[in-house]
Design a protein around this nucleic acid. Structure first.
Lengths: 202, 202
DNA sequence: GCAAAAGTGTTCGGCGTACACCCATGC
DNA sequence: GCATGGGTGTACGCCGAACACTTTTGC
């Protein structure tokens, strides 16, 4: 079982990797994962692993794909069920360890990975882009309230291209994923921005 | 590992089920599946199972979802990696057995199934409907050449609604999934129909 | 008053949908 | 010549994309 954990910080899509502290592939970076614990369902295992590394629960978490043999498992015939999750960086408290240390990596700067983990991340990114188009998956990448600009920056980071402000605003409001709050946020010598929240969440 | 095998016969979407001849759930119907064989990849296992039951190879076959505990496996912690496949009924030769006998069932008339197999079929049908919209997956449900009406009937069976002949034709030809051949097929006292083939599928 | 980000409307092309008649053939 | 299915065109509403100026605030 493995969990591809994405976040967006400073306009960059980042993924959480773990530095392996044992064979095989000791010293290389890899997607967080591990074996199922006794009596645990697949989803419970993914939730647990996500919480272990980031301290976060109740976020977007979805099964991605099952790979044949990229797992670190010792015995042949085992399979790697990959999940992917989206987290708000403000809520994350990375596990503090020296061995098996987790760290964020920008997608553009990923180091050579153990097993075929590059492929897994690639599949996850493709799915993420798809999900963004027709679901409110982004709710999991932002605080409860946020400005339109913040939301747009998350979309741009994931899609890898800039978007038109007016079209973005119109399209998102048309979906009913988000709703305006009555609050504004002042943040510098310019007009304050309205805060929005995801409808259907919280 | 399990394979949801779909076909369309006489305007009805059908799924292949196996009558179980051993515990657990002996006597009930279930999705074809089984354990991985030694050294086999997940996809190879799905291909093998599909060939065992239908004699068919080289068709649409795609991973669907991995379920935690609906497998018939005896030991806890095993997972069921589900695949789904689309086959042309004309190419199928069902395995002839008395035990573990395979049979086609219309989706509307499915008997009570072993484990949670209803759920798996449901997920597969939803994915199939999605795939049909933006891929040429239907290539696998029809012979090499076919008439527009035949193709439309396949779409209608899967989508569960009738489609407008003119719009269907225009939309399909716009995709470049299919191309006209120079052949016609006469079949009764009316104008012969042009035959089409899937482009990109030899 | 000016710098900086927030907020707002219109036009256009493409796509899905609704809808009705002529065409080619076999008998 | 008529019954049967094959084959075609137009109009309209919606949606995504392109594009520039006014508003509100802090200093």
């Amino acid at each position: 079982m493995l969990v591809v954990i994405f976040t967006v910080v400073e306009g960059a899509l980042q993924v959480l990797l773990i530095e392996r502290s044992a064979a095989p592939a000791e010293g290389r970076w890899a997607i967080p994962g591990g074996a199922l614990q006794h009596g645990e369902s697949l989803e419970q295992a993914a939730v647990r692993k996500l919480a272990e590394e980031t301290g976060v629960t109740d976020v977007f978490l979805e099964q991605l794909y099952t790979f044949g043999d990229l797992d670190a498992s010792p015995h042949e015939g085992s399979v790697g069920v990959a999940w992917f999750a989206l987290v708000d960086p403000a809520r994350v408290r990375l596990a503090q360890r020296t061995a098996w240390r987790p760290e964020w990596w920008s997608l553009a700067e990923i180091p050579p990975l153990a097993f075929d983990n590059e492929l897994v991340i690639d599949v996850a990114r493709t799915r993420l882009i798809g999900k963004l188009q027709y679901t409110d998956a982004a709710y999991s990448l932002l605080p409860t309230t946020f400005t339109m600009r913040e939301l747009q920056e998350v979309y741009e980071a994931i899609l890898g291209r800039t978007l038109d402000k007016r079209n973005f605003r119109r399209r998102l409001l048309a979906t009913d994923f988000i709703a305006a709050t009555s609050e504004l946020r002042s943040d510098g010598r310019h007009r304050p921005a309205r805060l929005y929240r995801f409808a259907n969440r919280s």
